[in-house]
Design a protein around this nucleic acid. Structure first.
Length: 833
RNA sequence: GCCGAGAUGGUGGAAUGGCAGACACGCUAGCUUGAGGGGCUAGUGAGCGUAAGCUUGUGAGAGUUCAAAUCUCUCUCUCGGCACCA
């Protein structure tokens, strides 16, 4: 006894500031079972099974080098769900791998002289070791690492496929350039404030020849989420990103001697306001600007364009910025009413949207109104506000009204007018109904080393020539130099750049840009089906069996990046006939963020929680259960050392319950029925909660069950056999959440290895029913009393019992009962006066 | 500015039309122990009361209902997304 206490004390002291005592050695048990499971290949998966398949995928981690608590928060609860499905009889694929290309590896190379490959693989090794401590059912045979040649060979192969199908093209375009990362970025990687997603540096515009994927071809399909069980907000974000709007292209007559173009086309959603056009605005980048600018305005226009270019994206995109512009000296004619209107340029018109030109209707557009006021341009009302007396407007009128000053359309409600004007324009050949999208094609070129090289060759004679499939992979050269200038090492690597043309055999140069890493993650879920196949990117049969992913979990930050690209990719290769489904992820679930001290974890705040230190003191099971218990998974939670202590206490109680001797005493038939009912109610609630991904209430249900069993044990009120059955159920229900503890106790309570191959318990609805139920008694809606009655009670019987209660009588006395509301098995409300 | 989510004890949260605060944390008291830690038992929204009990209470205000944390409207605040998209 004395010795035990002393050992316990010493152990408690070792735990430092976490003052907890343990009745069992979690860490040792976990190590033991992890080793055994691995030796036995317990979690190895194959496609030859008569069980239904279940593909549970967690977004794979980037090889940052350390598995932090955020990774645990993403992975541990996913594993619980996957284990649950497995016990329920599904053939579960729950793979893991690494997103291994990307800038940090290259920065490490520049800074510390380590080759990106070495840096990355060292991180993989470390993270793999850490990942194994979670005790997940990962089948490590299926691990994929995107920077390995056997993987990126196929990333390059997909590039060639997209190229062959006209979905990859090269084009010169104004692109987002991050001066710090020394590379271009996709639109999706530029934050709302115009800074780089990676390093927060302001992004600038550059004109560069780049590779694009034609994601816009799938704009409409990407807005469709039918049959997908996805969070509404992700679907909304994706749809906003596509930004579809229906409108009309309208041609304005341009007649300038010596200028080839005879029209300027604008895109508008408000064709009903076309009679109110008083000027036109072109984007400064619009190629027409140079041609139409009159000699006397040339200097002003050029100065304005130069100024625009100097602005960073932040400044240009700021809605705060006052709208300014300059007149080009040119005029166009509004074909509908013959009005000659001046053509201006202004940076609030975007080159990349619509036609890069807008018709300005200051009376009915706030931006145009502000611009007109600033430059004293006329405002012409064509949609009448209610009770409008013809006075000049104080502000733009953007609501509905009847059309005025609009020739034959006068009197038409403006909403109707949109279609009527468009129809008229089409008849005359002056316009055409069109659809515009905000979505731009996906820019995939990166001027970096650490990515999959774009498999293209430039030949003086033959032009752009794809690398033949049989020559893949185009390997990254090992002798590249990483200079602090930040320029792409590939550009200056002669052994890489110089090659021969596959077509003519002459000297040629390789493309030195590599692919956006989102390309690697756009197809990794296919590779998991068979990670070893070396004759194809993916195993057609295995993909047919496993895909699509049944449950995909990860952070919401990927809404318009990874998730969007992966969907595009899936649709593109479906149309190539490579697969027969168009959506990769059936159900999507976004977990929240785990924070600490009410703040985001960061090194500078010093509030980073290191999972390893908790795992090595309290065990993975404790950390797993705590992460599930702390808050609803989709919401995210605040890490708290006191909170995890509570979980530790609970698991210790479970241990004692299962290992300490049980002594029946006063065995009671009624107690048995209570126990049986609670067992079935617990199975029901736990099963439904895991199904609905409500882990926090699932854990609290298990705690309640544990607390109840504690009382049963103290009383010894059920037989030995019934007690053992009750404990067995607890262990089975606990198995997905605390797999090591459950396995250990399973053996210690005399069951056969392994609990994880055991069937998930099922509940019997009849046995779960309460025999007696409380009826709430309300007087005028206020709870006044409560009565316990048999569940089968009729309304008449219940009323009789309740109205006979002395306490109820005191309330009724001297009053009139107006109404009696009876809700079976719940309450009775007496409305009295 | 627009769109979406949210606001419940000292804390994390539970309850989705029917007993508000399950389950935990923390706190208080008692027991156990050589002290500390740990463990166990009881209590714990607030106010009044020795108690039974009463009153009050889910961001603010109004409404629907026999009954509202839950449904409707208005407002405040917090978080997330979008933001010159013509």
């Amino acid at each position: 006894m004395q010795v035990n206490r002393l050992v316990a004390t010493m152990r408690a002291n070792l735990k430092g500031n976490l003052n907890m005592e343990n009745t069992y050695n979690q860490v040792e048990i976990e190590r033991k079972w992890q080793k055994r499971w691995e030796e036995d290949n317990l979690y190895k998966v194959n496609e030859h099974s008569d069980r239904p398949k279940w593909y549970a995928l967690t977004m794979f981690p980037y090889t940052s080098g350390d598995l932090h608590i955020g990774h645990w928060y993403a992975m541990a609860p996913s594993d619980v769900h996957a284990r649950f499905k497995r016990m329920q009889g599904f053939n579960v694929l729950h793979p893991i791998g690494f997103d291994a290309f990307g800038l940090p590896a290259e920065n490490a190379a520049i800074k510390r002289g380590i080759h990106p490959y070495q840096w990355t693989m060292k991180n993989v090794e470390n993270m793999r070791k850490q990942l194994k401590t979670i005790g997940a059912i990962y089948d490590w045979d299926r691990e994929v690492i995107t920077c390995q040649p056997d993987y990126y060979k196929w990333t390059q192969w997909f590039f060639l496929k997209l190229y062959q199908h006209g979905l990859a093209y090269r084009s010169k375009a104004p692109v987002n350039w991050c001066p710090r990362c020394q590379t271009v970025l996709a639109n999706e990687q530029v934050l709302a404030n115009g800074t780089c997603e990676r390093c927060d540096e302001p992004v600038v515009r550059k004109d560069l020849e780049q590779w694009f994927f034609r994601i816009t071809k799938y704009a409409d399909e990407l807005m469709q989420h039918e049959g997908l069980d996805w969070p509404e907000r992700i679907k909304t974000m994706q749809n906003n990103w596509v930004g579809k709007s229906t409108g009309t292209d309208i041609s304005f007559e341009l007649n300038i001697p010596g200028v080839e173009e005879k029209e300027i086309r604008v895109f508008t959603t408000r064709a009903d306001t076309v009679y109110g056009v008083t000027f036109m605005v072109l984007a400064p980048e619009n190629p027409l600007v140079e041609k139409i600018t009159t000699p006397d305005m040339k200097a002003d226009v050029e100065a304005y364009i130069a100024k625009t270019r100097r602005f960073t994206e932040i400044e240009r995109l700021s809605t705060e910025k006052e709208k300014d512009g300059v007149f080009t000296g040119a005029y166009v004619t509004n074909r509908l009413n013959g009005d000659k209107v001046p053509v201006w340029i202004a940076d609030y018109v975007l080159a990349g949207y619509g036609t890069g030109a807008v018709m300005a209707v200051p009376a009915h557009d706030e931006r145009d109104f502000a611009f007109a006021k600033k430059y004293n341009l006329p405002v012409k009302v064509v949609i009448s506000p209610p009770d409008w007396n013809g006075a000049p407007l104080e502000a733009a009128y953007t609501d509905e009204g009847k059309m005025v000053n609009s020739a034959q359309f006068d009197g038409t409600p403006n909403k109707e007018g949109i279609g009527k004007v468009a129809e008229f324009l089409e008849e005359k050949g002056w316009g055409k109904r069109t659809i515009s999208y905000k979505l731009r094609d996906w820019l995939i070129s990166r001027q970096r080393y650490w990515g999959a090289p774009i498999p293209m060759i430039y030949c003086q004679k033959c032009g752009i020539v794809p690398v033949p499939e049989e020559e893949l992979p185009v390997l990254l050269p090992e002798d590249a130099e990483f200079k602090p200038t930040g320029e792409s090492p590939l550009k200056y690597c002669a052994s890489f750049v110089n090659t021969t043309c596959p077509e003519c055999g002459g000297a040629a140069k390789r493309e030195t840009d590599t692919m956006d890493t989102f390309m690697c993650s756009s197809w990794y879920f296919l590779r998991y089906a068979n990670a070893h196949i070396d004759t194809a990117a993916f195993d057609k049969e295995a993909v047919k069996y496993w895909l699509p992913v049944d449950l995909y979990t990860g952070g919401a930050e990927h809404a318009v990046m990874h998730l969007f690209y992966a969907r595009f990719f899936t649709k593109a290769i479906r149309d190539m006939g490579l697969i027969d489904f168009g959506e990769p992820f059936i159900k999507l679930f976004n977990q929240g963020t785990i924070i600490s001290n009410k703040q985001k974890m960061s090194k500078s705040r010093g509030n980073v929680v290191n999972p390893d230190s908790y795992v090595s003191r309290l065990g993975a099971d404790t950390v797993r259960c705590y992460l599930m218990f702390v808050a609803p998974w989709e919401q995210g939670g605040d890490w708290n050392d006191n909170g995890i202590a509570g979980i530790n206490r609970w698991l210790n109680r479970v241990w004692k319950l299962a290992t300490e001797a049980y002594t029946p005493n006063n065995v009671d038939e009624e107690e048995f029925r209570n126990l049986q009912r609670i067992i079935h109610q617990t199975i029901k609630k736990v099963t439904q909660d895991i199904d609905k991904i409500r882990y926090n209430t699932m854990i609290s249900t298990l705690m309640e069950y544990t607390n109840y069993l504690g009382k049963v044990k103290d009383n010894g009120s059920v037989s030995q056999k019934d007690w053992e059955e009750a404990v067995k159920t607890l262990l089975l229900l606990l198995a997905p959440s605390a797999p090591h503890l459950a396995e250990e106790l399973w053996l210690q309570t005399g069951h056969k290895y392994s609990i994880h191959n055991w069937k998930w318990p099922e509940w019997d609805e009849t046995l779960a029913q309460d025999e007696e139920i409380p009826i709430i008694i309300q007087i005028n809606g206020k709870t006044r009393d409560k009565v316990t009655v048999p569940a089968s009670i009729t309304e008449e019987e219940a009323k009789e019992i309740i109205l006979a209660k002395p306490k109820v009588k005191t309330y009724i006395e001297g009053n009139e009962i107006i109404k009696i509301i009876y809700v079976p098995k719940k309450l009775l409300n007496l409305v009295i006066k």
